[in-house]
Design a binder for these strands. Structure first.
Length: 423
RNA sequence: GGAGAGGUGGCCGAGCGGCUGAAGGCAACGGUUUGCUAAACCGUCGUACGGGUAAAAACCCGUACCCCGGGUUCGAAUCCCGGCCUCUCCGCCA
């Protein structure tokens, strides 16, 4: 959520921001409701002042005076009810609109329509040239008995899969490696609940908007998270932290669930777009300071790059353009990893910073040394998501004989083996 | 699932329908003392919104807020109803 005062002062900034991000929200309507609401509230306040004043006199008045005062109070009460009705009508409209207003993007963000207009910032690693006919991850996974999509679909429908044998081990290895890496960087490891109340979904900015993308336990009014970002970011929601607690750095490994509604027919092959996967996620809850936020953003991006470099996977970093930004994001860097079967880079990481956007929604604040209460800044990024990252690992580490070399960094997690071979 | 208890400020915890924005304690902040730290003592110390003076810091006035929403009342933290949440005991289960 953004600050209504800032909208009042500079509505154009928010109009432009919404348009660039391709969100449809009527700032003029919002401001009109805001000013009416403000006006009604002021009237109500004046009226209440008068009511309170009169009420306090009552016990001290003589009988006739008292009756007179009571009569006036009665009239004031009818007026008060009218004003209250007006507020009850407008306040929900105001609140709903406020949840819709996007955070304006940083000036660093390139203007663009969609992900094709994201701007590449840098590349790392050499893209492997094959001197034999390479297989894609499904072919490899089937031949080596690592992946079973057919039975996943039989039991759970499309976009489901089993990982099996070394496939299951490789999946665990890459996640554990990433988690250990982050712990060593000083991030606090967390095991988090995956069924979240609507409040947490709203607080992180997923609701309203991502309801269709979310599996929901209707009976219990709980939502299966699409990322550990939700529990980690909302962990301190509603709290007043002290400045010494910041920055709070968390890392969690969790399963993630996504309905992929609206993606029908897209990326239907393989393990790229699936309903359930596991992810190690990093979250920073920081001070209300843009320079610090930007530094943290670089930090979480560097963490993910370090993991990819340790795995020796070629990737590029893109500066995500305005049209591809979420409602709350100020700026987002995606890490895209080379995937031979896609003949291109596929998104494997997404590093976002939000400034106060999420913290405002969840009332996440801290007290400064100067004893001022400020909203925190929040950021998050993928550390590793699997099985998506198994795509480049399997495909890039494959050998002409059909075996797959285990990346050096993962060998300690795979009983120090060097290769995955057909049994 | 059955029975009961409870939700008050950063935290703990009192609270008679008007004198309570809320006792007391802890924490925090400022100061005195002290070679330093600690202790002791004195003082300050909720949030949001609106209005006023102001460049700002700050200050003043008002309103709201003691889980949420309704109600009773001239007046509600306090009484009534509904909801949400937490805890304890029993049962069941991992």
């Amino acid at each position: 959520m953004v600050d209504i005062k800032q909208i009042r002062e500079n509505p154009q900034l928010f109009k432009d921001g919404a348009r660039a991000k391709k969100f449809d929200v009527n700032i003029d309507d919002l401001l009109a409701i805001d000013s009416t609401l403000l006006n009604v509230k002021k009237k109500l306040q004046d009226l209440t002042t008068e009511k309170n004043r009169l009420g306090k006199e009552i016990p001290r008045l003589a009988e006739t005076e008292k009756q007179k005062a009571l009569k006036i109070l009665g009239e004031l009460k009818t007026l008060e009810a009218e004003l209250n009705d007006k507020i009850k009508e407008l306040q929900p409209q105001f609140d709903a609109l406020m949840l819709e207003v996007p955070q304006p993007p940083s000036p660093e963000v390139p203007f663009g329509e969609d992900d094709t207009q994201n701007v590449e910032l840098r590349r790392w690693g050499a893209i492997r040239q094959f001197d034999f006919e390479y297989k894609d991850h499904i072919q490899l996974g089937t031949a080596l008995n690592l992946i079973d999509v057919e039975r996943g679909v039989k039991l759970a429908g499309t976009r489901n899969y089993f990982l099996k044998g070394d496939g299951a081990l490789l999946h665990r290895a890459v996640l554990q490696f990433a988690l250990d890496f982050m712990i060593q960087k000083g991030y606090t490891p967390m095991v988090v609940p995956l069924l979240m109340r609507d409040e947490a979904m709203r607080g992180t900015g997923y609701y309203p908007g991502a309801e269709e993308q979310t599996y929901r336990m209707e009976r219990d009014e709980l939502n299966l998270v699409g990322t550990a970002e939700v529990p980690l970011t909302a962990y301190h929601s509603g709290e007043l932290l002290t400045e010494e607690m910041l920055p709070a750095k968390f890392v969690a490994m969790s399963s993630c669930f996504r309905r992929e509604a609206g993606a029908a027919g897209k990326d239907t092959y393989g393990l790229y777009r699936i309903h359930q996967f596991d992810k190690v996620e990093q979250v920073i809850i920081g001070e209300n300071d843009e320079a610090k936020s930007i530094a943290y953003h670089q930090e979480i991006l560097a963490n993910s790059e370090a993991v990819m470099q340790a795995l020796n996977l070629p990737y590029r970093v893109v500066n995500v353009c305005t049209g591809d930004l979420g409602r709350g994001q100020v700026q987002k860097f995606d890490v895209e990893t080379w995937m031979p079967s896609r003949k291109g880079f596929g998104e494997t990481h997404s590093a976002s910073r939000f400034y106060e956007f999420q913290a405002r929604r969840m009332n996440l604040r801290y007290k400064t040394a100067g004893r001022q209460n400020l909203f925190c800044h929040t950021l998050n990024n993928t550390v590793i998501a699997s099985p998506r990252v198994l795509i480049p690992i399997l495909e890039l580490y494959q050998n002409a004989d059909g075996s797959v070399t285990i990346p050096q960094a993962l060998r300690p997690y795979m009983n120090n083996r060097e290769k995955i071979e057909a049994q």
